[in-house]
Amino acid sequence: MDRIIDTIEAIAALFVGLVAADIFLSVLLRRFFSIQIPDSYDFGRMLLGILIFWGIAATSYRGTHITVDLVWAQANRRWKRVIDIFATLVLLFVVTVQTYTLFDKVRSTYVDHVLTFDLGLPTWPFFAVAWIGDVSAVVLIAIRTFRLIVHPEEMRESRPVSR
């Protein structure tokens, strides 16, 4: 399971690099050479969407997303575990529904043959990669739920300092 988790996190990091490179290259070419990459805006927009869904996958397992843990911080060890399990189950439900609806977006962009503006490339593969990131989030949240319930000792420190 740890290999799956690490792979998903590495893919998310790759997309961070791709988005940063796209933005940097676009600005550099436009500023100094007055050249615009065809479909740069479309690629940037779709890569950012991909990044968001893969980022959800990466942060969902670790529980390192921004949280406000006023009740959790005051609870004893047993109640902290109960709260973590409940919150993770809610997150699993929400992200599963989100994954289902995002698949509809992938399907509709494929069926409607939605293309980029300049090059006329199909957009559905970008939506499909984002959807795979969302599926990865569901898998990681399910692993997190399983570990919280059955093997809580396998969980690394799941909460940052409360903010």
Rank of each mutant, 00 (worst) to 15 (best):
A20D: 09
T116Q: 04
S108V: 09
A13V: 12
V19D: 07
V90M: 04
W79F: 10
D118P: 10
H151M: 06
Q98V: 05
L51E: 00
E154M: 05
R3G: 14
F126S: 05
V95G: 00
Q98Y: 13
L47Y: 11
I85V: 13
V90W: 01
L92H: 00
S60I: 06
R3I: 15
V139N: 03
Q98K: 04
G63I: 06
R107G: 12
E9Y: 08
R144H: 07
P38Y: 13
A57C: 12
F33S: 11
F127N: 09
L28Y: 14
A57Q: 09
I143H: 10
L70V: 09
F126T: 05
V97F: 10
W54S: 11
I35M: 14
F24A: 15
I143T: 09
L14Y: 10
V19G: 06
V82T: 04
L115T: 10
T88F: 08
V95F: 06
G49W: 14
L70G: 14
A73H: 14
V19P: 06
S136F: 01
G133L: 05
R78N: 08
S34Y: 14
F86S: 04
I50P: 03
L48G: 13
P125L: 12
W124H: 03
Y41T: 04
I11Q: 12
D104Y: 01
L25Q: 01
F146I: 03
V106W: 02
R144N: 06
W124R: 02
L91F: 07
S60L: 05
D42G: 09
R30Q: 06
T67E: 12
V95E: 01
A57H: 10
V161L: 08
D69P: 05
V27L: 11
S136K: 00
I4N: 06
D69Y: 03
V27T: 14
R81Y: 06
R62G: 10
T88V: 08
L47I: 05
V114I: 15
R78S: 09
V106M: 05
I8E: 00
D112V: 02
L121R: 08
V138D: 06
V95D: 00
R163N: 12
T109Q: 01
M1V: 15
F43E: 01
P125M: 12
A13Y: 08
M155F: 04
F103E: 01
A20V: 15
A130D: 13
W131A: 08
L89G: 11
L51N: 00
L48V: 01
Y61W: 07
T99R: 03
L89D: 09
R156Q: 05
I83G: 08
V150A: 09
H113Q: 11
G133C: 06
I4K: 12
G133K: 04
V114C: 10
R107I: 14
S40E: 11
R31Q: 14
A130Y: 12
I35W: 15
S34C: 08
R159L: 11
S136E: 00
I37Q: 03
I141Q: 01
T101G: 10
V82Q: 00
F43L: 11
